[in-house]
Design a protein around this nucleic acid. Structure first.
Length: 276
DNA sequence: ACGGAAACCTGGACGC
DNA sequence: TGCGTCCAGGTTTCCG
């Protein structure tokens, strides 16, 4: 579920728990969580994860797109939450619930949880080994995400602009919710071919992406993630959503009814009244 | 090369 | 209550 703002909030909140600490032991309880993104070779991958994380010091917690990265004194632990992945913190070595992977430190245990087992935890010597990271596009909250960079990302693609925004190789970390929201803010129809946006529209879209992500990040940090509560999840995001999940409700800008359609196989919300 | 659809998994919501 | 169906905020892979 988490998109860029959620993962960023997780990274910031996790830092004081693990930065500078040593993973005394890694236990893989559900091997599929250690497999490659395709799900193959899970037993080998699980053994590799336990071996390579054990004894490693966590030097930094970072985020790239929707990936959470624990930079170690040797290699990196790379996590992807997909739909339902979550982190849980236990103050001792005892864990409970359906933990997929446990990282034990002297101060407590970090658990990676995913009831659907689509999420992944992998160890790599170099981040380039993760295909999704190797090809990752520009970070939308970084300074280099200018209107020119966005125009470059959209140029040459006849796909619907909404589908382009979901392409992680173009822009990092934007998912199904915030792509719909950014297009609403920019007053652009999600079906518009990406390469046909005018300069003005591209500018508005950049603004829309940056604003919705910043807004969501603020929301995700107040209140901050609570890793000690297994039932915790981000609260209050619906307050900042203007179209996502609001099918049939009135558009807060023009009063037209919000519509839903399938675009690139994903549920897409938009306002036919003011998104042109 | 490119776009579309299926696959990977499981739980929850909904209709009958 | 029970069962079938559809849906899910992601990414990779397969197929035409």
């Amino acid at each position: 579920m988490p998109e860029l703002p959620e993962v960023e909030a997780i990274a910031r909140t996790l830092r004081p728990f693990v930065e500078g600490r040593t993973i005394e032991r890694c236990r893989v309880i559900h091997p599929i969580a250690a497999a490659g993104m395709s799900g193959k070779g899970k037993q080998v991958a699980a053994a590799k994860l336990e071996k390579n994380l054990g004894g490693r010091k966590i030097e930094r917690v970072e985020r790239r797109g929707k990936f959470l990265i624990l930079a170690l004194d040797s290699g990196s632990a790379v996590m992807h939450f997909k739909f339902d992945g979550q982190l849980v913190w236990f103050d001792g070595k005892e864990t409970c619930g359906h933990i997929d992977v446990a990282l034990e430190t002297a101060h407590g245990t970090l658990g990676f949880v995913d009831p659907r087992h689509l999420g992944r935890v992998q160890w790599v010597a170099s981040l380039d080994e993760i295909p999704g990271l190797r090809t990752m596009g520009v970070e939308p909250l970084a300074e280099e995400f200018t209107a020119e960079r966005l125009a470059e990302a959209l140029a040459g693609s006849r796909k619907a602009v909404k589908v382009c925004l979901l392409d992680q190789a173009k822009i990092a970390g934007v998912g199904n919710i915030y792509s719909s929201e950014a297009l609403w803010r920019a007053r652009i129809d999600p079906r518009r071919p990406a390469h046909r946006l005018s300069e003005t529209e591209t500018n508005r879209l950049r603004r829309g992406i940056v604003d919705v992500l910043r807004n969501a990040l603020k929301c995700c940090l107040h209140p901050a993630p609570n890793f000690r509560d297994a039932n915790w999840w981000f609260q209050g995001l619906e307050r900042i959503l203007r179209v996502y999940g609001r099918e049939e409700k009135k558009c807060q800008r023009c009063g037209h009814r919000v519509a839903r359609m399938q675009l690139g196989g994903r549920g897409t919300y938009w306002c036919p009244g003011c998104q042109k």
